[in-house]
Amino acid sequence: MTNLIQRFGKFLAFFIHDMGEMVFLTIGINRWMFKKPFDGKLILEQMVKIGVESIPVAVNTAFFTGMVLALQSGYTLETKIKGVSQFIGAVVSISMLRELGPVLTAMVIAGRMGSAVAAEIGTMQVTEQVDALYTLAANPVKYLAVPRFLAFTFMLPLLTIFADLIGWAGGLFICSMKFTSSTIYIESTRSSVEAGDIMGGVIKGVFFGAIIAIVACRQGFATTNGAEGVGRATTNAVVFSFMLILISDYFLNAVLIALHI
């Protein structure tokens, strides 16, 4: 038991130390972002990798989430409160837009690309490629972290919007098959969704993108001890991203509600 508490304490200390380092990295990224040269090609490359190539997994996640939402809420509404299945559209679309779209997309992208970025930068670190960048007058934060940061923060909200649409369509599919007509589903969506619901999800997407980028880059740059270290950096990148996404999701929600968004 004490062993377990000790280990948890160690993890907590490590996590807090890492958070501090991430603040420094964030400052560094913001400082280098506006300095020349502008690495347009690198940014575009990362946008393709992080955004475009992630569409299949984002679609898969969103479609099935929308379907299960419709199935579960439809079943619950039908059995518990008779005759309210006309609200399925509202339940699915609001849940997708405000919560599941941004959070699940962020998780999937953290798993797919946060880990990849940590592994790539980590490998570059342990093979001295990061040192080589310095000797060739390219600051690694500028050359590696800035393009990834921009790509994550720009692409994640776009993927979120995309996931919202796909999830909604998944709900529509199940709803029209099992519960009510598609017209009722669409009407229910139209009457309940407001611009703020969409905005809220997009704002979350921006924050989650920044979190994944900073966590992944930080873990990559902090890699030591060869292949084992790269493995650890990759794991940490995903675990820390997940934790921070869920924690910040709560606080973002609180702020959005306070701002009436």
């Binding site: 490998t123 093979t127 001295e128 490629q129 040192d131 080589a132 000797t135 060739l136 007058a137």
Partner: peptide, 29 residues
């Protein structure tokens, strides 16, 4: 560093770039 070249133990070439892009890295960027 313009006056200095460093040859790393395992070369530390950038794996994502070609030989040309590696050698020309500083010239281009």
């Amino acid at each position: 560093r313009k006056k200095m070249g460093v040859v790393f133990q395992y070369a530390a070439l950038f794996d994502s770039l070609t030989v040309f892009e590696n050698v020309a890295f500083r010239l281009l960027r």
